[in-house]
Design a protein around this nucleic acid. Structure first.
Lengths: 189, 189
DNA sequence: GACTGATTGTACCGATCGGTACAATATCCG
DNA sequence: CGGATATTGTACCGATCGGTACAATCAGTC
């Protein structure tokens, strides 16, 4: 009965979905238990720190996914333009073209923000920084690159909010299309 | 002891602040009572429908403020550019240059979204529509005007999220400055 | 000052909250 | 198999949740 990594990832994915659907306060232990099929005994065995530790682990897990799939593309691509395009593709796929909201963005707005402030700041900070680096490499001046990166990340967050508010997924697709043009990246095939 | 309009507005403003700080679930009746100085008796006297009615009234109140101060500027200005500039000024002042989040945007993301879906959709829908009209009047083609309006509202929401996440108010100011340029509106003096 | 209706405080309700304790059970290792 | 460790279910805790009931109190009106 040793912990197996994929199991933990899957568990965190389920818990993340509950937080996404219900918010931090709304995600009660009974809802989490129901979604995961685990009782309180198991939940507190894996997360002795309770709900707060669960949320922290979920954020770390998401952060890790972005590090591997989004930030890495920006950091490691030989061609910065290709890296930016890969970032946009990974972003689109992660948010399921607007079907899914950004849990970390939602946490930034709600009452849980104080608990997770540093994790939240870190996540967005690295996103902006890595994107700004790629933009600088592709010819933008440093100051302009930072502003454009900040604008891009904000546009993604805003599009997720608006897509959810309007209940219209196309809002998100349109935002990504505009970003591709704005960032000088070839349109999606 | 008749109800007086300003009192109600003030009451709703306080309740709104509690929802903003704590989210819908997090805003308990005891917190609301503490903030307003009202006991449960009074609270349920003014809002027989309980917490849900309070939130609905708060959303209506915010919606009304935007209707009067933001949408009206877009709708009634002789010069559409001046209307857009007035919209941006009112927006900046409402969100206190990023110190305040958009409660309706936050509700769009969290578990309360289903309860208030139509009010949320309406609010953002009218914002985009009125802005698109003003942009069309100022020379943009209809399709382009709609996209630009959507992009603008999303940029504002995203900037609020990012400003809160980074704990950096300048994120919001920078976003507004970029929007002024993008919308062809004279820079703030 | 008595009547009327708006407003308020308090006690109370059942349900659920996050969290703890712990015995029972499963799995692995030798 | 036996022992050690990992995992689980269940019962329980005090606190708080949103909501209800209702009597007391207040402000105007006549």
């Amino acid at each position: 009965m040793r912990r197996i990594a994929p199991e933990r990832d899957q568990l965190l994915a389920i818990v993340a979905e509950v937080f996404r659907e219900q918010g931090y306060e709304g995600a009660s232990l009974s809802l989490i238990g129901e979604a995961t099929g685990l009782g309180k005994g198991s939940l507190y065995h894996f997360f002795p720190g309770g709900k707060e530790e669960m949320a922290r682990a979920v954020i770390d897990n998401i952060d890790g996914w972005f590090e591997e799939n989004v930030f890495a593309a920006l950091r490691d691509s030989a061609d910065p333009r290709a890296g930016i395009e890969r970032m946009l593709e990974a972003t689109d796929s992660y948010f399921r073209s607007g079907r899914r909201i950004c849990l970390i963005g939602a946490f930034a707005l709600d009452e849980s923000r104080d608990l997770f402030a540093s994790q939240i700041r870190d996540y967005f900070g690295r996103w902006v920084t890595h994107l700004a680096d790629a933009l600088a490499q592709s010819g933008h001046g440093p100051a302009e690159a930072t502003e454009l990166a900040e604008e891009t990340v904000a546009a993604i967050q805003g599009a997720l909010t608006l897509a959810r508010a309007a209940n219209d997924l196309d809002v998100f697709s349109r935002a990504l299309r505009r970003l591709r043009m704005r960032l000088g990246v070839p349109a999606n095939i």
